Simulated assay, not measured.
Amino acid sequence: MLVKKSFKFRIFPNPRQIELINKTIGCSRFVFNFFLSKQKEKEAYWYIVENMTQNGQLPSNNWKSEFFNKYDSIKAVRQLKEHYAFLKEVDSISLQKSVENLADSYQRYYKKQNNAPKFKSKKNKVHTYTTKQTNGNIAVHEKYIKLPKLGLVRFAKSREVEGRIINATIRRKPSGRYFVAIVTETEVMPLPKTNSSTGVDLGLKDFAILADGTKYKNNRYYKELEQKLVKAQQVLSRRVFGSSNWNKQRIKVARIHEKIENKRTDFLHKTSSDIIKNHDVIGIENLQVSNLMKNKKTAQAIADVSWHQFKVMLKYKAEWYGKAVVEVSKTFPSSQLCSSCGYKNKDVKDPGLREWTCKCGAHHQRDRNAGLNLKNEAIRLLTVGATGIA
């Protein structure tokens, strides 16, 4: 099965390359904002036209003129270079890709999949630009990565890059470190079948509890480094904004945040891979994380466990390796149902009730019982889908 895979590495550009990366990021942001501004002007014009048409002052007009035209905009990048000479210094493909990103954002907006695109700011925490593979302009040579305009850039090679390279995204983090993510198209072989099914109940006390009772500890990475982060932020608040010492301390704060992020991402990858390797069918609850985050008492703890990111990893890994992840409706009472007889105990709505005994005599541990119910519901949904029975 051909899939798109991303290989992320830290790169160590020299001063000349750093300057060019920063220029490319700035130019990509400029092009994105330029065409977004033009599109907003056009939308404002057609909004006025439509209002006048409704009042009978003008004939009806074609609203398709409002839509963002990707191909005309990409052609216009060449003309833009004649007016802004600094755009000629950087990789031209990255500028075209910036327009494509704006077009894709508008396509999702037209389909009501996200909000309208916003202007990019220099104050954003992470800055990136993307360039595409053309005539071997992106390649890996032992300890170096060849990138357009930059030439050979030294990188920390942690694994081999497999498959046909499609594009590369260069990222500058607040910590001052630079990374590259190389997207390739590669062949992935399905994992051997285990004939095992499970349900995954996500929680805060334990990160995840499976139907067989397996527990994955919630490491609370933010909590672990919270005191160190607080002290670093206190020092930062006493520095003069924009000074050299302020910038040094800002980098220290950013690196603590980066360390928390790296630890969490590593844990999520290892946990999701372990579950996928050992089970063919995985049932998981479709939690509305954005709604749960509205509770101020648990918002920080929920943000720290990254349930959404974990589900995303489970889904794409299941697709790669021939497994099935079934999302169970958020209205399904996984904790309240007895996994033995199906009796619904409404008292279990109280999160403080960790264990209970059903009328049938079965004794349940709350989280494991929820995992069993999610497993059974996932199998039922797969069976219904296969047979077409409602």
Results as ranks from 00 to 15, higher is better:
N218K: 02
N291H: 12
I275A: 02
E226I: 02
D304C: 02
Q300T: 12
Y321R: 05
S273G: 05
M313C: 00
Y221W: 14
N295M: 08
K252W: 01
N245W: 09
I256E: 03
L210N: 02
W307V: 07
L229N: 11
K277A: 14
L268P: 02
D274K: 15
A318H: 03
K231I: 13
I284A: 04
I260R: 00
G322Y: 04
N262I: 01
H269Y: 12
I276A: 04
H257P: 01
I260H: 00
V253C: 13
V328M: 05
Y316R: 05
V289P: 04
K317V: 01
H308A: 08
I256C: 04
F241I: 09
R250S: 13
E261Y: 08
S306W: 01
L236T: 06
E285A: 12
I256F: 05
K263A: 00
A324Q: 15
A318L: 03
S290Q: 15
V281I: 15
I275Y: 01
S306N: 07
K248N: 09
V281T: 12
S273D: 13
F310Y: 13
E261N: 14
V281P: 03
V240P: 00
P333E: 09
N295F: 07
R220V: 06
E261C: 06
K259N: 10
Q234T: 08
S243C: 14
Q234R: 15
H308E: 03
K228L: 11
V326I: 15
R255N: 13
S244R: 15
W307L: 08
N247S: 12
E261I: 03
M313A: 04
M313P: 00
W307G: 01
K297F: 10
N291S: 14
G242D: 10
K297G: 01
S334T: 07
I260F: 00
N245T: 09
I276F: 06
R264N: 09
K270L: 07
M293P: 00
L314F: 08
V253H: 04
F310N: 01
K294P: 01
T298S: 11
R220F: 05
E327A: 15
K248D: 07
R264M: 06
V240R: 13
T298V: 14
N247D: 10
S243K: 14
F241Q: 11
K231E: 11
W320S: 04
W246E: 06
A318N: 03
A232M: 10
T265G: 01
Q249E: 13
Y316C: 06
K231Q: 13
I284T: 02
H308W: 03
Q227F: 05
K217W: 08
F267S: 12
R250C: 10
H308M: 02
Q227D: 14
D274H: 15
R250Q: 13
E258H: 00
S272R: 03
D266K: 07
R238Q: 13
K315W: 00
N291R: 14
V230C: 01
K263F: 08
M293F: 06
A211E: 05
R250M: 07
L225N: 11
K330A: 15
N247E: 13
W246L: 05
L210K: 01
Q227I: 05
